[in-house]
């Protein structure tokens, strides 16, 4: 077992133990953070590893969220197939977006993804008859269960979130070690060179974006079932910025960065809201400070300075 694998299993074990140590309030928080971290991990696969700075990942998260939510509420699916539907929806929407958006790069890519996400948000509002627009849908409690496991209760919810998080994290780790992962990083580092090594940049980036969309879709789907609410606010630009913020804070291109970023940011807002209502300021200032003074984030800087083996 390598150091890296040991570290990741250690983090998962610590989160497992945390369930028994934390009071209920923080338990719910950590469950939420783990789901959001999966979303951010997906974002990191596109941005951190492949170099695709998307401003539209809320679309993939919302695709998962709504596919699951509407699957349960309108089609009467039970939670398990609805979750699967959410996962697939995230990947499929990412594929469709990618086929078009990946014809552009850099700033155009950012704007195109932003516009697609905006279209998605407006579409949710437009079909308000089914989605109930801004007001959103509360998923009925009875449907939020897999078999006899009631996912709306604290403990099963925590373990469901942890299971998803652990799977996502370990796949992420495997990916960074794989040939695919290496070719994704090659796109980020030097697309021209990669092309002249025989890689089709469009193909590699599309695969990365679809994996990223599957992560976001899974996170969205889980969020709907675990927390029981499906609303248009999750499709707004704020939810595209959020994973970017987490990833920048924790460290782009590091496996544990998204979780660390989500954890710190979540509690930063949570604690600061005890003193001030200025959440927007906290988010804005964090973005500025990161981009100005620590563009590599916490783990990225740590890897550069001290712990070179950090994946």
């Amino acid at each position: 077992m390598t150091r890296a694998l040991a570290l990741h299993l250690g983090v998962i074990a610590a989160l497992f133990a945390a369930q028994y140590l934390l009071p209920s309030y923080h338990q719910t928080n950590i469950a939420r953070i783990m789901v959001l971290a999966v979303f951010a991990m997906g974002y990191n696969i596109a941005f951190g590893y492949t170099g695709l700075l998307s401003l539209g990942h809320a679309l993939f998260f919302a695709a998962g969220l709504y596919a699951t939510g509407l699957g349960i509420e309108l089609a009467g699916l039970s939670a398990a197939p609805a979750l699967l539907l959410g996962l697939i929806a995230g990947g499929a929407i990412a594929a469709a977006t990618g086929v078009l958006a990946l014809r552009t790069s850099g700033v155009s890519f950012m704007i195109v993804t932003l516009m697609f996400a905006q279209t998605g948000y407006l579409t949710i509002l437009y079909f308000g008859t089914y989605t109930r627009g801004d007001e959103g849908i509360v998923i009925n409690r009875a449907a939020r269960a897999i078999g006899s496991l009631d996912l709306s209760a604290d403990t099963p919810r925590y373990f469901a979130a942890l299971t998803l998080f652990a799977i996502a994290l370990l796949i992420n780790l495997m990916l960074t070690r794989s040939r695919l992962g290496r070719s994704m990083i090659a796109m980020r580092e030097n697309e021209q060179r990669s092309r002249m090594l025989g890689y089709n940049p469009f193909r590699v980036k599309l695969i990365a974006l679809v994996i990223s969309g599957l992560y976001a879709g899974a996170a969205g789907a889980a969020y709907g079932v675990l927390f029981g609410y499906v609303g248009a606010s999750f499709a707004t630009i704020q939810y595209s910025i959020l994973p970017l913020l987490y990833v920048l804070l924790g460290g782009a291109g590091t496996t544990l960065g998204p979780f660390l970023g989500a954890l710190i940011m979540f509690y930063l807002i949570d604690i600061s809201s005890g003193y001030t209502t200025a959440h927007l300021f906290v988010v804005g200032a964090a973005l500025l400070v990161l981009v100005l003074f620590a563009p590599k984030g916490i783990l990225g800087t740590l890897r550069e300075r001290a712990v070179k083996w950090l994946p």
Partner: peptide, 13 residues
């Protein structure tokens, strides 16, 4: 772009 997103949050606040 990231910085101007940050600025926009600060101005809103």
């Amino acid at each position: 772009i990231v910085a101007t997103i940050g600025l926009s949050y600060i101005f809103q606040q």
